[in-house]
Design a protein around this nucleic acid. Structure first.
Length: 249
DNA sequence: AGCACA
């Protein structure tokens, strides 16, 4: 038992090799793209720097997204930790992406512009003749140029189009104030705010100095609080999943 | 289910 078995449970189960980009599917298709990307960014940024988040509306790509990290370690951590995480009421399924993301290829100089990709309506009369004589890999792109880098997330828009499908255990009285437990004891209000502030109606995070590990998060109304709770329920700020309930009145 | 880079 050398204890080095951690690598076995990763993403090689389906033959895909580790990649700085993770491929996520089983995402809730009702969520608008912008909100989806914003939430993915918020939820995954804890694992490392995110270069880009990509998602598309087309039929073939609904419910899927790509999150490009700066390094493989972050991607691996994200893959393991967020596997089956209930995101907009659906457990997200995460794998390593099969191929290198363009933004990465551009940064390391291996980017080759694809000529025919989007127009898949072209008739497949000839499929050989690869034009490899164009030396396009000398793109001369700056190494740390990340054209699609994810900037500061605007939080003016409503992330939620989904109805308040609450996963409530039993008899619970909704409240516009949430009670958050099992936080890491060194969690700060500012840290929590990063997660809770992205949902509509967010007002403030309050922490009790005498009681580490808990917080109150206030929203404008119960529906808003419920929506935020649903997304962040069980989310791991550090190691342990936080527990969110309605605060008692 | 589905691996792209609008």
């Amino acid at each position: 038992m050398s204890g080095e078995a951690a690598a076995g449970g990763g993403g090689e189960a389906n033959g895909v090799q580790p990649n700085v980009t993770i491929y996520i599917n089983n995402l809730n298709e009702k969520i608008k793209l912008e909100a989806l990307k914003k939430s993915l960014n918020a939820v995954f940024s804890q694992f490392g720097k995110i270069i880009e988040v990509l998602a598309f509306k087309t039929l073939k790509h609904k419910g899927q997204a790509w999150v490009v990290f700066e390094d493989v370690a972050s991607a691996t951590e994200a893959l393991k930790r967020m596997q089956d995480f209930p995101f907009y009421d659906k457990p997200m399924k995460i794998q390593y992406a099969k191929t290198k993301s363009d933004v990465i290829a551009k940064a390391d100089g291996t980017f080759v512009p694809r000529e025919k990709r989007k127009r898949n309506d072209e008739k497949p009369e000839k499929k050989q003749k690869r034009e490899q004589h164009h030396d396009v890999n000398q793109a001369g792109v700056g190494m740390h140029a990340y054209p699609g880098a994810y900037g500061a997330p605007p939080l003016s828009q409503l992330p939620f189009g989904a109805g308040p499908k609450v996963m409530m255990p039993e008899i619970i009285v909704p409240n516009n104030i949430l009670f958050v437990q099992e936080l890491p004891h060194d969690a700060t209000a500012l840290m929590l705010q990063m997660f809770f502030c992205q949902y509509p109606g967010f007002k403030e995070v309050r922490m009790i100095e005498a009681k580490p590990g808990i917080a109150f998060v206030e929203y404008g109304d119960e529906g808003q609080a419920t929506a935020a709770m649903n997304l962040l329920q069980g989310f791991k700020i550090k190691e342990n999943p936080m527990r969110i309930t309605y605060a008692k009145k």
